[in-house]
């Protein structure tokens, strides 16, 4: 917690995907902080407590200096005398957080998040990994099923508003040409990542109608959702030539 808001960071046990969630202080009814605070919490316990709240309830999160627990108070909005309190004990993760250095990315595309979710889902049916290429003309997401030899390909073309789907007969790649409305480009870049983790990242589509994909050669892929209250980022470690 800092004076700007709350930053949440979590990583899967295989260190393949790291999620960073920033919630600005402007998304809270009130936000008070004496000094920066870093807490390590078991995410399932926190989720269990927060799920006890109804959509209209008021949640107050509190932790004191040198606290060992985060206290979550849940209040019914029209019955403020009705309060339930839950403590989520801190855990020791061994380190506070990972420092993610800000790097200049070589290429970025922004696409509709629902299309991105469909792309991830469909390519995951084909293969455990996919190649993402961003070139001057656009972006290409390709997956190959080694067993059957089937290849799936989604192409995002720059400044095109066509939206068509080509089925794969005679081994031609099936592809969707999708309107892509924002992009920056510095140099041609390609990365290979696990489709499973891309599917996971693409499921956050309800947060924002747009999603950005940022790449730099030999660096983790960044999948980013920007929305009014903050930003959600997924860093996915690439698969590299051994």
């Amino acid at each position: 917690c800092s004076k700007e808001g709350i930053m949440l960071q979590g990583m899967d046990e295989f260190h393949i995907s790291l999620v960073e969630f920033f919630l600005s202080k402007r998304s809270f009814e009130s936000y008070a902080l004496c000094h920066d605070l870093c807490m390590s919490l078991p995410i399932d316990s926190l989720a269990t407590v927060l799920k006890k709240a109804n959509d209209d309830d008021v949640c107050t999160l509190k932790a004191g200096h040198k606290a060992k627990v985060l206290t979550v108070a849940i209040e019914t909005r029209d019955q403020p005398w009705l309060v339930s309190k839950h403590d989520v004990p801190f855990i020791d993760l061994g380190s506070e957080y990972l420092v993610i250095s800000r790097i200049p990315y070589d290429a970025k595309i922004t696409v509709w998040s629902t299309r991105f979710a469909r792309l991830a889902h469909e390519l995951h049916q084909l293969s455990g990994s996919l190649d993402i290429q961003i070139i001057h003309e656009g972006a290409r997401f390709t997956a190959l099923d080694e067993g059957s030899g089937k290849k799936g390909c989604f192409i995002f073309r720059r400044a095109k508003v066509v939206d068509e789907y080509r089925d794969s007969e005679d081994d031609e790649p099936a592809g969707a040409i999708i309107h892509e409305f924002h992009r920056y480009f510095h140099k041609a870049t390609s990365l290979r990542v696990s489709t499973k983790y891309l599917v996971h990242a693409s499921k956050r589509a309800p947060l924002s109608s747009k999603v950005s994909v940022l790449m730099k050669e030999d660096q983790p892929l960044l999948v980013q959702y920007d929305f009014y209250e903050g930003v959600l980022k997924f860093y996915i470690a690439p698969r590299i030539a051994d």
Binding site: R192, Q219, I240
Partner: peptide, 14 residues
């Protein structure tokens, strides 16, 4: 051969 890289190769714990 393609290997899955580890995020800890890129980012260091504080």
């Amino acid at each position: 051969l393609v290997a899955q890289s580890d995020l800890l190769d890129y980012y260091k714990p504080k």
